[in-house]
C-alpha cells in the first residue's frame, strides 16, 4: 500500500535532547493542523470539538513525559507519525478514532456511581477500555 511505504522514510536521529524536544513540538503542530481534515473525513463534528482532540493529542504525548533518551523519543515520534499518517489516509474507521481519542481512557460507561460497588475488577476494566 502506498501510504505505508511513504511513511517509512526515517529521518536521521536527533543529535541532542533539545533537538528531539523541538521535533516533538513540530509533530504536535502537524497533528493539530490536521485536526480539521480528520474531523471532516471521520464525521466527528457532532461528537467532539477541536480543542478536545488537541488535548487528547497532548495527553498522548504527555504519557511519555519521563523519556529522556533522544533515540527513544525519535522512535516514539516515528510511531506517532505513523499513527497520524494512518489516520489521515483514512486507514481507520470512525469507531477507532472515537474509541481511542474521543472516549479515551474514561471508558464507555461513565456514570457508574452506586452500581460500581458490586462489580468485579475484571468487569470494571472490561468496561473501561481496550486501549491503554
Amino acid at each position: 500500500m502506498a501510504f505505508t511505504l511513504r511513511s517509512v522514510k526515517v529521518p536521521p536521529n536527533s543529535a541532542s535532547l533539545e533537538e528531539a524536544r523541538h521535533r516533538v513540538f513540530d509533530f504536535f503542530r502537524a497533528a493539530c493542523r490536521s485536526i480539521p481534515t480528520v474531523m471532516d473525513i471521520y464525521n466527528l463534528d457532532d461528537v467532539v470539538t477541536k480543542s478536545h482532540l488537541r488535548s487528547a493529542i497532548s495527553a498522548e504525548i504527555r504519557k511519555n513525559l519521563h523519556v529522556t533518551n533522544p533515540k527513544v523519543i525519535d522512535m516514539l515520534l516515528f510511531k506517532g507519525m505513523e499513527e497520524l499518517n494512518n489516520i489521515r489516509e483514512h486507514a481507520k474507521q470512525r469507531h477507532h478514532i472515537i474509541g481511542q481519542y474521543v472516549v479515551g481512557n474514561h471508558g464507555l460507561v461513565q456514570d457508574l456511581g452506586a452500581k460500581e460497588k458490586d462489580m468485579s475488577d475484571f468487569l470494571k476494566s472490561f468496561y473501561k477500555s481496550n486501549y491503554f
Partner: peptide, 10 residues
C-alpha cells in the same frame, strides 16, 4: 511548554 504550543494552536 507543550501547553504553550497547544494554546498557540488554539
Amino acid at each position: 511548554s507543550l501547553d504553550n504550543v497547544e494554546i498557540v494552536m488554539a
